[in-house]
């Protein structure tokens, strides 16, 4: 680094400025997306989801013989339980590792010392990861759809598209929860542990808890429906069933109650709940991250 080198590169005159709010978010999102594509978790989750989705597709087709009727619709139903297990796990752990990981590596401080705000950093990382997650899901769904189209034709393709849309919504809702966990955790291991606990609670404990509560406390159907609606995974499940059958009667009295009471508003209520699960945790995460006194 010689003086000649420095002097041969005169620095332009004028005060540097910060990027626009959206521009700063876009730059972080792009970088986060690229990093996610290159990361092992993305490749591993994408491969796992793809293999499982294709496996379920083949199983669904084998159940209907070679006629192939309702191939997409039947597969969508078969994928439902797989999605409820895998997608929240993917999104929660990815979100949980985001801010906490940067903090642990010491890179967060360096990022925040740049001309960006904390909310730009968080939103940029969120959008980048959300797009990466949706891409990962689309790869799995896409290959699965290819198998179905090849073997069974295009019957029930709308159900399948609805499933993809609702799965993307579930993924970004769980990503928001993961970000909230990440913001309040100082270490990645703690964040991941909490994320796994939340996943376990949403997937297993809430179902069992609801069943136990309904027996012990003799809950009414409306109360059971209300409690089930709080769980984003149950909301997702009901929304997918509604989108395929237009009725929740398959879920028994609670489903019948929901169909009769809410009628045509039911899908909107369920989707709105999922949207609320996306916005509220993300909003709280932004609030806490910007209010936090340390890095």
């Amino acid at each position: 680094m010689s003086s000649a080198q420095l002097q041969s590169h005169p620095i332009p005159i004028g005060m540097p400025t910060a990027p626009s709010f959206v521009g700063g978010i876009a730059r972080f999102a792009r970088r986060e997306f690229r990093d996610a594509l290159a990361s092992k978790w993305f490749i591993l989750y994408t491969m796992a989801f793809t293999v499982l989705a294709v496996g379920v597709s083949f199983l669904s087709l084998s159940g209907v013989g070679s006629h192939g009727f309702a191939g997409f619709g039947r597969t969508a139903a078969g994928l439902l339980n797989l999605i409820m297990l895998v997608v929240p796990l993917m999104a929660l752990t990815a979100g949980a590792g985001s801010i906490a990981g940067e903090r642990e590596r010491g890179t967060l401080l360096y990022m925040l010392s740049q001309p960006v705000s904390r909310s730009q950093v968080l939103l940029g990382k969120y959008f980048g990861l959300a797009v990466a997650l949706i891409c990962s899901l689309c790869i799995g769904f896409g290959i699965s759809a290819g198998v179905l189209a090849w073997r069974a034709g295009g019957a029930g393709v709308f159900d399948f598209l609805m499933l993809i849309g609702l799965t993307a919504l579930l993924a970004i809702a769980m990503l928001s929860v993961g970000f909230l966990i990440s913001v309040v955790s100082r270490r990645t291991s703690v964040a991941t542990g909490v994320a796994l606990f939340v996943w376990l609670t949403l997937v297993f404990v809430s179902d069992l808890g609801l069943m136990a509560s309904s027996v012990i406390f003799k809950l009414h159907v409306q109360e059971i429906f209300g409690l089930a609606s709080i769980n984003p995974l149950q909301c997702f499940k009901m929304a997918v069933i509604v989108s395929m059958n237009a009725s929740l009667d398959v879920l028994g009295p609670v489903g019948a109650y929901a169909s009769q009471t809410l009628g045509s508003a039911l899908p909107w209520v369920l989707v709105s709940t999922l949207i609320a699960w996306t916005i509220a945790p993300l909003g709280v995460a932004i609030f806490l991250f910007t209010r936090r006194g340390t890095v």
């Binding site: 540097p16 400025t17 910060a18 700063g24 010392s113 740049q114 960006v116 730009q120």
Partner: peptide, 9 residues
């Protein structure tokens, strides 16, 4: 962020 634009850290 506007203040930090003036700083190289």
């Amino acid at each position: 962020r506007h203040a930090r634009a003036l700083v190289g850290y």
